[in-house]
Write a protein that binds this DNA or RNA. Structure first.
Length: 945
RNA sequence: CGGCGCGUCGCCCAGUGGGAGGGCACACCCAUGAUAAGGGUGAGACGCGGGUUCGAUUCCCGCCGCGCCGACCA
């Protein structure tokens, strides 16, 4: 039935009895050759439609692992491979536990990187596409990468609904996004507000962070400006100091933002000083920066003295006046003192000029203190009419005039030049500015939502446990979600405007939804408001639909992916909301875990997941993050090509992925080696089962030899441990247990000591069938326990295990083994544990004997002199078997000495068949060179024909 | 710079307020009927500095290194 791999046709030497032995036979090759074999194995899964069968299980409990969508750009990297393989392990394990375990992979398609790459294509052709053309090409581009990544994931052995994945750019998905946005608006979460973004005044467009390039060597003015004191309720300045002599000083390189100043920020933890100058002025600055500040202001060290030192936090409630207050409106206003932790003592004065309309940090501080967002700059960089006398000037000119006016007001303490790096537009290479613009936001604090989200977090199980700290801090501290982007490749924000007034009603959203469901989000850009809303549209503002305009911004792609819990979980009959598990990299605390929680909880009232697992980052062998640019990245495709997917999967399975994981050449080689350490025992097991038919040859538990019962006891314990590893998502514990088992229980012990029995006993003898029964259960269980991780290898072995495929065509469809408590025997286990300890002692004695010339342990006799409780109850023959020696005898200890293990030459002759030294060799006249046992076997064999 | 983590033999992982373990790799030996296999023996580690404690790898603090996220560059 099985072909012998070995070539036994070569001329057998004299006395070669191998053909009379039951030597292992199997087609399961020692060399895996995974790179070529794995694709073939994958085809058997397709042939048996394994994915469908693990999903379509009527009545079975459902386990939903919801896939976080990778971005459809580029080839998959090791991080993807790690993450997807972990998901695959979980899904396959659950399926083997009897769950209906669907896995619907998805992709995140919209967004800047694709838009940027596509724009590059057009630019290379010197074309400037309109939005619709651009979007069409983005769509194609995304589809190409979906196909490409899909094949790469499949090659890793990831099982899932690859024929019907979810795509955020699909019509169904885009429509659901529109719907979700509409729901949030309806519930009152959505508002319009100002936010500073990078803005190119030359191209008159918003820029994403990725579109910014920092250019060294920009020359800018560097000015120190003093702000006069207005209120000092707690007496920070000396009581005898007249108010008109009290000031604070700021430093800036962007004088054009001074007209927008609303506050000065200080650090609560620094020390601040009031310095009195010879001219009678009192200046408040950070202690650490007093000297450079005074130097810059041209005040000699001899001309000022520190009259007071205070801690930053005591400065609260101070109010200053705008340094241009002398110009009257609109600058006759206050500049209040605020605290900010980004204040440093590296540069400046320790007092930071704050203009909420012109800086990210300034904006946040402004939000915190309820300051307005002053934004007097038009899209072309020209001051608008609210900028007082600067109105109509470009900020470049305006900045100079600001300096001039400050000087005239006497508040310019210093003006110098500074050369520094500054953000520039990547298209026109001109300097960019921060400019407050109108954006759409999700109000995180609407109706106590932040608290609800934090409560929802507590209902979720986080793996590892510490991970909850991160998500909680994230949600507790996050600002409102700016969901609008001034881009083309995304889902259009479904808002119409009439006379500048936004219109978003359940009816309008429904119209956009229906349109998107039919035609996709491109239609938002192709159709007129009348075409979208219909001729019978009634404007809530009483206007005409023909005068409507459409919002041009698209939604943040995090809004897309945050909507998967709606667009996927609720749209697929095989899934459900909430999902049982999300599993992503630790960066997704800020990303997908967060956006999903926001959208899921806001629209459905509970978190979209029950368990969240995080995997760490992939680092190189030196512990550095892998980056393509750093040259230390290991493409999964290379690993698959050189070692095979199962080696990569084994690496995934053996790593503690809750923390950062490392991979390098050495680790790969080691993993490949560990792979062999599992594969070879399986090969041996299969080889020992070549003539075993479990239906006919199985020995009843009660008839098993003690050794085999012990082996099965060990197996049950292994199953328990491995199961625990899978259940807690600590796969490395499962793999470690299996490794230990293969190396320790199997190779070093069981498979080693049963050889005589397996090879030399009668093929159908009770003890051989007993051992084979154990081998069969071990092999079957081991292969099934490995199937979620070493999917290819487990399948390969399953196909060769006698009788296995008749029950389950694929190992992935077989049930995960459960410990058989009837096979657990505590007393037996303890007895053998002691015997194995004695075996260690014997081995040490054998090692000494080797050094003394008794080279072959198998041809020795071990004498147990004295009292050896561990050996009690075992026959000498059993002990010889376990020690893998020819003979064991017991005798009393020499007078006065303790128990001692002695090793000597075995007595008798070597049996040419079983290679053991026996006293009875030659007793059988027919087989003078064999021991009696072997002679009996051969007689029976000959009798049988 | 801040938040959250991590640092145990060459590598992957365990572990504990009181003997620091396993597997892989390594060295030596045996074997050559699991054979580009197998067996045995052996050497080898708690990042650094404080503190708490009778006692710390384990608890606390600081430092260093690494990672993720965020901020900064006014």
């Amino acid at each position: 039935m099985k072909t012998k791999e070995k070539n036994s046709s070569s001329a057998a030497p004299e006395g070669d009895w191998r053909d009379t032995l039951n030597l292992p036979q199997t087609d399961f090759p020692m060399r895996a050759d995974l790179p070529t074999r794995e694709p073939e194995i994958a085809r058997t899964w397709e042939a048996h439609d394994v994915y469908r069968k693990t999903v379509d299980r009527p009545g079975a409990p459902v386990f939903v692992l919801h896939d976080g969508p990778p971005y459809s750009n580029g080839d998959i990297h090791l991080g993807h491979a790690l993450n997807k393989t972990l998901k695959d392990i979980i899904v396959k394990y659950r399926a083997m536990q009897g769950f209906s375990a669907p896995y619907v992979p998805g992709w995140d398609n919209h967004g800047l990187p694709i838009e940027v790459n596509v724009m590059k294509e057009f630019r290379a052709k010197k074309e400037t596409p309109d939005k619709v053309t651009l979007r069409k090409r983005c769509r194609e581009y995304a589809a190409e990468y979906v196909a490409r990544q899909r094949d790469q994931f499949k090659r890793l052995g990831i099982r899932g609904d690859w024929d019907d994945p979810y795509l955020t750019m699909s019509t169904v998905f885009e429509a659901e996004i529109v719907k979700v946005f509409g729901e949030l608006a309806q519930k009152g979460f959505i508002y319009r507000g100002l936010k500073p973004v990078y803005w190119c005044p030359t191209d008159e467009t918003a820029l994403a962070d990725a579109e910014i390039e920092y250019v060294e060597g920009k020359k800018d003015p560097s000015i120190y400006v003093r702000f006069p004191l207005k209120d000092d309720p707690h007496g920070v300045f000396p009581a005898d100091a007249p108010k008109e002599t009290c000031w604070t000083i700021i430093w800036t390189t962007t004088p054009w933002t001074i007209p927008s100043n609303l506050a000065v920020a200080v650090s609560p933890v620094f020390d601040y000083v009031v310095a009195k100058t010879a001219s009678g002025d009192h200046y408040l600055v950070a202690d650490a920066l007093l000297k450079p500040t005074m130097e810059a202001a041209g005040i000699a060290e001899s001309d000022y003295e520190v009259v007071k030192v205070v801690q930053g936090h005591t400065l609260h409630d101070l109010v200053f006046r705008h340094p241009l207050h002398g110009l009257g409106e609109p600058f006759d206003r206050d500049s209040v003192l605020v605290f900010a932790d980004y204040v440093t003592t590296d540069d400046g004065t320790g007092v930071v000029h704050t203009a909420p309309g012109h800086g990210k940090e300034d904006f946040q501080t402004g939000q915190k203190y309820g300051l307005p967002v002053l934004q007097p700059v038009l899209s072309n960089g020209v001051y608008d009419e609210t900028a007082g006398e600067f109105a109509g000037l470009h900020i470049n000119e305006g900045g100079k005039k600001v300096i001039e006016r400050l000087r005239e007001a006497g508040n310019l303490l210093s003006e110098q030049q500074v050369v520094h790096s500054y953000p520039h537009c990547w298209r026109c290479h001109n300097p960019v500015i921060f400019r407050a613009t109108v954006q759409w936001f999700m109000n995180i604090d609407h109706d106590g939502f932040r608290g609800k989200a934090l409560d929802a977090i507590k209902t979720v199980e986080w793996y590892p446990g510490e991970s909850i700290n991160r998500i909680s801090a994230m949600v507790a501290g996050r600002p409102d979600w700016c969901v609008s982007r001034q881009r083309a490749w995304g889902v259009g924000i479904p808002v119409f405007y009439y006379n500048g007034e936004p219109i978003i009603t359940p009816e309008s959203v429904a119209k956009v939804y229906e349109m998107t469901l039919r035609e996709g989000s491109d239609a938002w850009y192709e159709k007129t408001p009348r075409e979208i809303l219909g001729d019978d549209w009634v404007c809530p503002l009483g206007g005409s639909v023909d005068e409507y305009t459409k919002e041009t911004d698209v939604l943040d792609v995090w809004f897309d992916s945050g909507s998967t819990c709606r667009a996927v979980l609720e749209h697929r009959p095989e899934l459900h909301y909430p999902a049982d598990v999300y599993l992503e990299g630790s960066d997704q605390h800020r990303g997908w875990f967060n956006s999903s929680l926001m959208i899921g909880t806001a629209t459905r009232g509970e978190a979209p997941y029950r368990q969240v697992i995080t995997n760490g980052w992939t680092l190189d062998d030196k512990g550095k993050a892998m980056h393509k640019s750093a040259g230390n990245a290991i493409p999964p495709a290379n690993v698959v090509q050189m070692y095979g997917a199962d080696v990569l999967r084994l690496w995934v399975g053996s790593t503690n992925y809750f923390e950062d994981v490392r991979l390098g050449q050495k680790i790969l080689d080691q993993t490949a080696n560990a792979y062999r350490g599992i594969r070879n025992p399986i090969r041996f097991l299969l080889g020992g089962l070549y003539d075993f038919d479990p239906a006919k040859d199985r020995v009843a538990p009660a008839d098993l030899t003690e050794l085999d019962r012990y082996a099965l006891d060990r197996l049950q314990r292994l199953i328990g441990e491995v199961t625990r590893g899978y259940e807690t998502y600590e796969f490395h514990r499962a793999i470690r247990a299996i490794n230990d088992y293969c190396a320790g229980d199997l190779s070093a012990f069981y498979l080693n000591v049963i050889k005589d029995r397996l090879y030399a006993s009668g093929a159908n003898s009770r003890e051989r069938r007993s051992t084979q029964t154990a081998l069969y259960d071990i092999c079957s269980s081991l292969v099934r326990m490995l199937a979620p991780i070493l999917s290819f290898t487990a399948e390969e072995a399953w196909q060769m295990l006698p009788g296995a495929t008749a029950l389950y065509p694929s190992v992935e469809l077989a049930p995960f083994p459960a410990p058989d408590t009837a096979l657990l025997d505590e007393e037996l286990a303890a007895r053998w544990r002691d015997l194995l300890t004695l075996r260690d002692e014997v081995n040490k004695a054998l090692e000494e004997a080797k050094a003394n010339g008794l080279k072959k342990p198998m041809e020795t006799r071990v004498t147990l002199a004295g009292d050896f409780p561990a050996a009690e109850g075992f026959s000498d023959e059993d002990l010889a078997l376990v020690f893998v020696v020819s003979q064991v005898e017991r005798k009393a200890a020499a007078d006065g000495s303790g128990p001692q293990v002695q090793v000597g030459a075995a007595i008798g002759r070597k049996c040419e068949r079983c290679w053991l030294i026996k006293r009875d060799v030659g007793a059988d006249t027919l087989f003078p060179k064999l021991c009696e046992r072997c002679a009996d076997v051969l007689r029976a064999r000959n009798a049988a024909g």
